[in-house]
Structures are given as structure tokens and as C-alpha cells.
Design a protein around this nucleic acid. Structure first.
Lengths: 232, 232
DNA sequence: TCAAGAAGTGACGCTGACGTCAGTGTTGAG
DNA sequence: CTCAACACTGACGTCAGCGTCACTTCTTGA
């Protein structure tokens, strides 16, 4: 009654194996050539199946792509955990760091997908763009609400929460993209996490004479020795 | 001897007018349909010229696109002014703000191009990608060097300058994109500039009990009334 | 008025990628 | 052994979009 055998010719894969095989090949091709350059022929060649087989499992190129993106987007989403301000076991800082770290980890674990998501996911067609925008808006919305709540609690500085959300996500996105593109070692993830956190927590500009309203340093009389490192 | 007339049929445009006309039409089409959806027919239809005329002025779709992107990239580049720390007339903060403001202004003044640059410029083909990457690297390099110099002078916090550059540019890019996409009024530019500046200067996280090395607030005992607004 | 040249036109043929479907090979039940 | 069911194959017809080029129209100077 055993349905599957090892392999007779090149066929005989268990249940949904073929589909996975095609997905994997597509991911490979997309990340190598980009969505628009990629052809069905590329994908089936890479998967080692015939053209017709592809259409047994997917509507068209767009559909495979959507499948890949959906899975990945889900992983990213799952990596994010809502901040719990009442949690005694973990400070807000640690929770924020954990989120950054988790997203970084998810992306570094799937570099090809990260690259695909960042470079090709937008501009496929208006339907797909809408889908991406929806996913993106969900994330932005979530962060915006968190920030608003944070402001209520006095742990997030003033400012339009949505703008702060865009700034944060933009910063993270860019670093993510560069980390993946430049082939950063997975080990640097922790260092990067800390750098991002520091950035969100304190920015980096320490201008001496500063008429800025968002003051960072205690109250700095004028300019206390522009040394290589800011005090306090 | 006067070469140009008003217009005889639909022809007779002065010197390089036709080219401009096609460029404008292309910009319109690209921003509306996206690079990949756009066809030469779309462009010539929008420009009101024949298919053949297009090829009198451009090699192919890619070439028009490159032309548009080049012009725009040049404008952005010109908007950026190197920070002069010795300048007595303008503080570093003001110069930073001015740069942010200039870039914002340039992008808001050409929304379609901004949108095109952000959504379509990557993934055309590997040649074009390389070109974009080069432009981008120039900007990153410039900022990285500035930050390194800033660290030397003690007006930029510690941290890998390149990472800080990515974070800043990412944040700016994202806000830019959203501002343009969501059709933000040009008037908000100043407010946004300030928000971005504040973000770069001080981040926004003001977590109470903080084992973080990059401390922001003076030294906050524990949590002094989680009011709606953080204390000075 | 005419001819030469410049500018513009659009029908045409080509091509690369697509999606289909008649056919092949394998499997397992009868 | 035979047959139906199934997964898979790849040659084939279609077509959207491309780039060309023979032709038309306009301009200008003689």
C-alpha cells in the first residue's frame, strides 16, 4: 500500500513535493535574475521539469511569486511581537531589541527572499502593488499605534507617530537590505540590532550649540570640549 | 531667418522641443503605469507623435527612462551641500536641516519622478541596476565620510558610520516616498524636515529603566509620572 | 515654382515568451 | 496481462510589443 517509491525515472516525489521543488527553483531564479527578467522557461529549467508541469501547479509567473512573497511576509509578521509595557520579566528596551533582532534574523535566514521582496515586489502590477501596500500598511499601523501608546506612557518622544513609524521602518528596511545584499555574516546580527536600537533611542547628532527643540543632552552649557565622544 | 513658427500642423516645434515632449509624456506614463507596464505605444500615444518619431530621439524605452532618472538624480545631488563645520554664519544643525529640506523640496517638486525613482528604478536590468547602485553609493559614501568626520569632531555619536549612513538614508527615503505617494502638501515640508532632524538628533525612545549604553535622558530615577509628555 | 532636405508617420514583419493539449510513461487494481 | 488513472512532457499556435523603413508632409532657399 506504500504509495511512494524512491524514484523511478526522475518522478515519484511524495505528495506536494513537486510544488515545493518549483517554488524553490523560482525563488532561486527570481533572486538571480529579478522578477521581470525571469521567464517560465528559466524556472522550469532550474527545477528540471517540463514547461507544462509548471502550469499543473501554478496559474502563471505572478502566482508563484505571490506564493513566495506571501510565505515570507507571514514569517516576518510572525517575528514581530507586540510590546508589553507591563511585563516585569522583560523591559521595553529588551522587547524592542528582540523585535529588531527577530526581523533581522528572519531576513538573514532567507536572503534571496529578502532581496526579492525589496527589489521586485513593487511594480509587478497594480493588484499586486495593492496587496503589498496592504501588508506594509498593517506593519506601519501596528508600529504607529505602539508609538502612540508609548507617547501616552511617556516613553516615546513627541512627534507625529506615523512619521516616526515611517522613519523607523525606513531605517530598518535599508539596513536590512544592505545587510542581505552585502552578504553580511549572520553573526553581525546582534551588533546591528544594537546599532539600530541606539539609533532609535538617541539618534546620533550631538551638535554643540543647538537651538533645536528636541534636546538630547542634559543641558550642555555651550560646548564642553568637542571631544571624540560625548559625555554622560 | 526665423526658424520656428507657432505650429503648422502639429509639427514645427523649436529645436529640441520634440525630445522634451516625449520625455514629459514618458514621465507621465511611467509614473502612471510603472516602467514595466509601460509600452512605447503608451508613450507615443501620450506624446501625440508616431511610433517612428520616438526612435528618432531615443534608442528604446530604457533610454528614455535612463534620461529621466539621470536628470532627476542630478537634481537631487545638486540639492546636497557638504557640511561646513567652520562656517560661522550657519550652525551644523542648520546645515543639516537645510540639506534635508533641499532634498525634500526637490522630491516634492517632482513627485512623479520621485515615485518612479523609488518604485521602478531598480530591477530594470543589471546594467541599469549597476548605474543606480553607483549613484546610491556616492551618496552613501559622502554621508559616511561626513559622519566619520563628525565623530572625529565629537558631534556625531559612536557607531559604524556606514551603518549610521544607511539608517539615515533609509529613514529619509521612506519618508520621502510616503510624503510623495500620499500626496503630502508641499507646505508640510518644513514640519517634516524638523521631524527628521529631531529623529536624527535624538531618536525617540525614552525607555525608563534602561540598561542601554546609549543613554539619552539625564538619569531619570525610575519613572517619574508616566505623563503624556516626557520631562525636559 | 520647384527641388532638396529634414522631420514625422504608421503599417509591417519579427521575435520571445506564453499557455495549451495531444501524447508518453508509470503505476496499481482487477 | 490489461486498462484506467495519473503525473508529466514539450512541440505548437498565438500574440503583444518591438524596431524598421518606404513614404508623406513640411520647410526653405534658389
Amino acid at each position: 500500500m506504500a504509495v511512494r517509491r524512491t524514484s523511478k525515472k526522475r518522478t515519484g516525489l511524495p505528495k506536494g513535493e513537486r510544488r515545493q521543488q518549483i517554488l524553490a527553483a523560482a525563488r532561486e531564479v527570481f533572486s538571480k535574475r529579478g522578477y521581470h527578467q525571469a521567464t517560465i522557461d528559466d524556472i522550469v529549467a532550474s527545477a528540471g521539469v517540463a514547461r507544462g508541469t509548471f502550469y499543473l501547479y501554478f496559474e502563471d509567473k505572478r502566482a508563484v511569486f505571490a506564493d513566495l512573497v506571501d510565505r515570507f511576509a507571514a514569517k516576518i509578521t510572525m517575528a514581530i511581537v507586540s510590546i508589553e509595557t507591563e511585563d516585569a520579566r522583560s523591559s521595553v528596551s529588551d522587547q524592542v531589541r528582540a523585535n529588531i533582532r527577530a526581523i533581522l534574523g528572519a531576513c538573514l535566514a532567507e536572503r534571496p527572499m529578502t532581496k526579492i521582496l525589496f527589489t521586485d515586489a513593487v511594480g509587478i502590477d497594480s493588484d499586486f502593488d495593492r496587496k503589498i501596500a496592504t501588508f506594509y500598511d498593517t506593519v506601519v499601523q501596528l508600529l504607529t499605534e505602539s508609538l502612540r501608546e508609548g507617547q501616552r506612557l511617556g516613553i516615546v518622544a513627541d512627534g507625529e507617530p506615523r512619521v516616526l513609524a515611517y522613519l523607523s521602518i525606513g531605517a530598518l528596511k535599508e539596513l536590512l537590505y544592505q545587510a542581505v545584499t552585502l552578504g553580511l555574516a549572520e553573526e553581525s546580527a546582534d551588533v546591528l540590532t544594537q546599532q539600530i536600537f541606539d539609533f532609535l533611542a538617541a539618534g546620533y547628532l550631538r551638535t554643540p550649540v543647538d537651538r533645536t527643540r528636541a534636546r538630547t543632552t542634559p543641558r550642555k552649557p555651550k560646548n564642553d570640549k568637542p571631544a571624540a565622544r560625548r559625555p554622560a
